[in-house]
Simulated assay, not measured.
Amino acid sequence: MNKRVLGVIDATTYHEGLKELMIHRSLAAIPFAGRYRLIDFVLSNMVNANIESVAIFPKFQYRSLMDHLGSGKDWDLNRKRDGLFFFPSSIIEGIRRGIGSFSHFAANMDYFQRSKQEYALITNCFTVSNMDFKPVLDKHIQTGCDITEIYHLGKSMQMYLVKTAFLIDLIQTREKTGYTCMSDVVTDIYHTYRICRYDYHGYAAMIDSIESYFAASMELLTPEVWNKLFQKDHPIFTKVKDEPPTRYLRGASVHHSIIANGCQIEGVVENSIISRAVKIGRGAVVKNSIIMQKSQIGDHCVLDSVIIDKDVRIETGTVMTGSRTSPYVIRKGTGQGALMNI
């Protein structure tokens, strides 16, 4: 697919249900599985399909996203030809529910017109999956469709494969047709295009709320789901950080959890996901929770069904309890004390 397909990732989506995790970052940059970001999955899927030119179209709070992806080196996209491109949006527009703003694309039309790839794959940034895009291209070519839309369990994944020339035409005629994005095209009952459906049968989770984020994270603790998502012959890449192994001190107990590098654990961790460089104090108990990078959990704290964002400090003796259907969220860089028990 390397000389045939252009990768286009829409990173402009804002989900109101994830606002607690999107105050300081874009949706694409939300941490997941202890050491990844949401965008890592679709980007890695493109790289594994030998796509060598990928354009990221961000809009909100994209500094952390650019810091994470850098030049694309960790995805083998730091190239003299093609590679990884960023096209931030300066366009102010109303609510748009679909993926792939044609106005945003139009502001960067040179990228599409100069590309030599015959096809363009347009995706969202918030689907966690390990998908092989090669069969999608094969079916698209065989059927001769104008648009191939990818589905999972009967629901659109908001991923589309089209010819690049066709995409350029949609962008250039947007004012005449009234189409603002790809979903406008496929849902228009009066369109004259041939639209096909590709059904993906592997594991996939679309993250659009705190509840779906928490549920997908907890699913990772199931070996069956983990093995479907993380495959040796189809790896998920992320930014490499050289950190020491985690230290388990006297009194530490870890069960059914994912622990990233660089942590220091003295307490009890059960059924949880612990990101890099987290410190869990003596006698602390962390259950059914997600603790993000560099957060510190004080001695004798009790956390159950909570999401702790990055750089949070939980003071000694603090008790916080949420539920699987409504996890309690602590914002990035804040602190919680024993007098603020939940």
Rank of each mutant, 00 (worst) to 15 (best):
T334L: 14
G72I: 03
A11M: 08
T334R: 11
G72D: 03
R96N: 13
S64W: 05
M46H: 09
V268N: 06
D304G: 03
R96Y: 15
E52F: 02
G262V: 03
R37H: 11
K116E: 13
Y248R: 15
H68P: 02
Y200R: 05
L249I: 08
R174D: 11
I290F: 12
N108F: 06
Q293W: 06
S212V: 12
N50I: 00
N2C: 01
M1F: 13
L229V: 14
Y200D: 08
L161N: 01
L153Q: 06
Y119C: 10
E16Q: 14
Q142E: 15
D67G: 04
V254Q: 07
E224P: 02
R35C: 03
E270K: 10
R324Q: 11
V225G: 02
H140T: 15
M1V: 13
S89E: 11
M206P: 00
T334F: 07
I91E: 04
I91V: 14
T325K: 09
S326Q: 14
F112Q: 08
T325S: 13
I236R: 09
R282W: 05
I274K: 12
Y36D: 04
M292N: 07
G281R: 05
M292V: 03
H234C: 03
M218T: 09
I171G: 00
I189N: 09
A277L: 15
A49N: 14
L167C: 05
K80H: 12
Q117W: 02
N341K: 08
E224K: 11
R4D: 12
I342G: 13
L65S: 01
K155M: 10
Y193S: 04
Q61T: 04
K310V: 08
A165C: 02
H15W: 13
S90L: 14
M218H: 10
G267S: 12
N261S: 15
G283Q: 14
M131V: 14
V185D: 11
M182I: 08
V162E: 12
M320C: 08
C181I: 01
F102G: 08
K279V: 00
D74R: 09
Q296A: 12
V302A: 02
